[in-house]
Amino acid sequence: MPSETPQAEVGPTGCPHRSGPHSAKGSLEKGSPEDKEAKEPLWIRPDAPSRCTWQLGRPASESPHHHTAPAKSPKILPDILKKIGDTPMVRINKIGKKFGLKCELLAKCEFFNAGGSVKDRISLRMIEDAERDGTLKPGDTIIEPTSGNTGIGLALAAAVRGYRCIIVMPEKMSSEKVDVLRALGAEIVRTPTNARFDSPESHVGVAWRLKNEIPNSHILDQYRNASNPLAHYDTTADEILQQCDGKLDMLVASVGTGGTITGIARKLKEKCPGCRIIGVDPEGSILAEPEELNQTEQTTYEVEGIGYDFIPTVLDRTVVDKWFKSNDEEAFTFARMLIAQEGLLCGGSAGSTVAVAVKAAQELQEGQRCVVILPDSVRNYMTKFLSDRWMLQKGFLKEEDLTEKKPWWWHLRVQELGLSAPLTVLPTITCGHTIEILREKGFDQAPVVDEAGVILGMVTLGNMLSSLLAGKVQPSDQVGKVIYKQFKQIRLTDTLGRLSHILEMDHFALVV
Rank of each mutant, 00 (worst) to 15 (best):
G148C: 01
K247C: 11
H203R: 02
F197H: 08
A107M: 03
G134M: 06
R209L: 08
F111A: 02
R91G: 15
K267T: 07
S217T: 09
G205V: 05
E270G: 06
K247Y: 06
P170N: 01
G85V: 10
L184C: 06
I264D: 01
L56D: 13
H218C: 14
I80S: 13
K83F: 11
V206G: 08
N216K: 09
P229E: 06
R91K: 14
K25D: 11
Q7D: 08
G256R: 00
S175T: 12
L77V: 14
R224T: 11
P78Y: 04
A130E: 03
S117F: 04
F112R: 01
L81F: 11
T193Q: 08
K82T: 03
T141M: 14
I92L: 04
P46C: 05
P59C: 12
L106W: 14
R190G: 03
V180R: 01
A69Y: 12
S175P: 05
I166N: 07
L124R: 06
S147L: 00
I214Y: 06
K39W: 14
E9H: 10
A24Y: 11
H65G: 00
E9D: 13
C165P: 00
D35C: 04
G14I: 11
L248V: 14
S217Q: 05
V168M: 06
G205M: 02
L156A: 01
K72R: 12
I143E: 04
M89N: 00
V10A: 13
Q55P: 02
A38M: 06
H218S: 02
R196H: 02
P273E: 07
V252H: 07
P273Y: 01
I44R: 12
S117T: 06
G246S: 08
K177Y: 00
R196D: 02
F112V: 04
V255R: 02
P145Y: 01
R51H: 08
G57L: 03
A107C: 14
R266Q: 08
I261W: 02
D238P: 11
V180T: 10
V252I: 14
D198P: 06
K97D: 15
A60V: 11
P46Y: 00
P16Y: 13
G246Q: 06
E201Y: 04
E144P: 01
R132I: 03
I76F: 03
R196V: 03
E104Q: 14
E34V: 11
T191P: 01
N93D: 11
P138R: 15
P64I: 10
